[in-house]
Nucleic acid binder design. Sequence first.
DNA 1: AACTAAAATGAATATATATTCATTTATATT
DNA 2: AATATAAATGAATATATATTCATTTTAGTT
Lengths: 191, 191
Amino acid sequence: MARPKDETKIDAIFEATLKLVQKSGFNGLKMADVAKAAGMATGTLYIYFKNKDVLINELFLSLKQSKTSRMMAGYDAADSFADTFRKLWFNYLELSLAEPERMLFIEQFAHTSFLTKKTKQQGDQMLEPLIAFLEQGMQKKIIRKMPMDLLLSQLMGPIYETIKAQQSKKLVLTPAQKQGMFEMAWRSVAF
Amino acid sequence: MARPKDETKIDAIFEATLKLVQKSGFNGLKMADVAKAAGMATGTLYIYFKNKDVLINELFLSLKQSKTSRMMAGYDAADSFADTFRKLWFNYLELSLAEPERMLFIEQFAHTSFLTKKTKQQGDQMLEPLIAFLEQGMQKKIIRKMPMDLLLSQLMGPIYETIKAQQSKKLVLTPAQKQGMFEMAWRSVAF
DNA sequence: AACTAAAATGAATATATATTCATTTATATT
DNA sequence: AATATAAATGAATATATATTCATTTTAGTT
């Protein structure tokens, strides 16, 4: 019919947004800056995203989707609970250390007023496979029984805080320290 | 000399700011709204605080100061390490559960572009007594040896995440669950 | 090659909101 | 009681920035 949308622009916009949020937070994010960093005119942003809120919410979902599927990579229901737990935990840690900006975007955005109800609900849904896995562990008495929210807090909390520390100071983790973190996580929740 | 400043206004401004940030985040915070909620004219805010950034940074320091001293309440160098650890940990948990808005203000603000270098440095300084205490525990081989940042992340992370969960869902913790959280914390870091 | 429709542009517009300041009010000092 | 000084006011100003839209460019269609 006519000129088609250039789908690669969406990625360019996402990357630019991520970079700018990392530098100056959600507050400082300006549409004009996003456009410039993405190499296009301001108005073009509005062809791909209705407005700033929509842009940020969609970026959030995209990041969360990617994060979740990478965490679950290699999941095999045939493996033992302990092995799977170790695998997922390390997936999550490495993911977090490798791309702290992406993880912090997700984590921080989840507590801003930009987050819409719908986005929140869609984001929560993505965690379901993980939740099912952990429920199983509790049922089998391999990990302590507790409300899912507490369990997730216990497991994710230290990782989030670690990458925050990694950001401000320039903490680099040795393999032994990563192993230590895993042991702490495991000991804390093991039955 | 002349009309004195009404120091109670500072508290009113802080309370109003806290309430509004809780409702609509740092983004949505408007000086006009703060003034209204605090029962004064917009211009009055500028008598007590140079500008919005200063206001928020000072509120942050005030909250962090209060939080820290309440966490250290009852600290006695004569007590055993384990007893003190338990006391401080429960102080922190109860503080967090009782005033999640205050804790989240601190936690979230620490990662916004509003936070100035100076404020950050002043805030970090407040943690020093806690850090000294934990160092001791590592030296005495009561808790595992690890970089302080990792230890703090391990201990604080789950609590932050828990109050975030408490905010969105209406999770209420039973005494047994609190005890369970403590056990997880202790087991994870104990030597 | 001409045509069409949508993408892309970016200056102009609309809006939101932080900050200022001329004026009024209140308190301490004389 | 009069005076001086600073607090308090809130409308006006300045500024920042999200969004729009008339215009231009581009890619597909005939």
